[in-house]
Amino acid sequence: MGKFILKKVLMMIPMLFIVSLLVFFAIRTTKADPVTYLIPADVVISEENMEALRARYGLDAPLYVQYFRWIGNLLRGDFGKSIVGGTSVAAIVARSLPATFELAFGALIISSVIGITLGVLSAIHQNGIIDYVGRFIAVLGTSMPQFFFGIIMIQIFAIKLGWLPVGGRTDPSVVTFWDRAKYLVLPTLTMSIAMISTLLKYSRNSMLEVLNRDYIKTARMKGISERRVYITHALRNALRPVMVIIIFRLPLLIGGSVVIESVFSWPGISTQIVGATTSGDYPVIMVTTLLIAATILVSSVLLDIITALLDPRVRLGKE
């Protein structure tokens, strides 16, 4: 098992390099020019001043030189400075990441627990009330766009009823986490709904499929209780495809959801990325994109590990 993990982890390094190359050259070959973004349209600035500004940001050197400078700095721990705001990218990431993380983490946990539970229960009690509730939620989550749902939530709970804030993450009166909790409710809920639907459907279908297998009959045949049949025998087999979905949502923890953060004015990484992309703020874009790519790679490895743990066939090299 240890060798297995090590192999996978080592494979990540060359992949990360390739990703960094892609990220760098893809973004730099677009037309976005941060220097022109900095200057408002009404302001006249002479060509020499523009060039001087470019030089200050190192934008005048040939691309491959810029790439090596960037990678070099990165490996030394210097993530560069935002062109638009002047703050260090590391600081930007450090303050936005926790915001994105806490939101996505809550949503992932809630959606996974509810989605899987409802899905499994729907499969067990087919055509029962739970099944209907589950199907209803599934339709809701898949057909309603997240931003629409979010806006409706804000209108109902924040504006009409006034129970929750309209957006943002915090205010000056906040001292502990629990003071801040009310800001988390609506964004987490909105983010969860869409995620719940997919998980629900997959869990349900997977569970149904497993329940039709012969080994479930064998299990029942032993005379064990239904509960044991479902939990010990069925669940562990049914969860494998579902794990894939959950693991591939892990990048949300780092990259965040653009839609959610925008609708709720949540100060996370996605907001930074959007702002940086519009203004051509390369240092921010490149580091954040690289970060997200790294998270996806890690998730992939994690998935391999967990699958191996769940399914001995994979672990022992077969199939």
Binding site: A158, I159, V166, G167, G168, D171, S262, S265, P267
Partner: peptide
């Protein structure tokens, strides 16, 4: 004076922000 980062003025106004 409290200046928040909310992006939509109408929603902000409705929410007292």
């Amino acid at each position: 004076i409290h200046i928040s980062a909310l992006s939509d003025p109408i929603v902000a106004a409705q929410g007292g922000q």
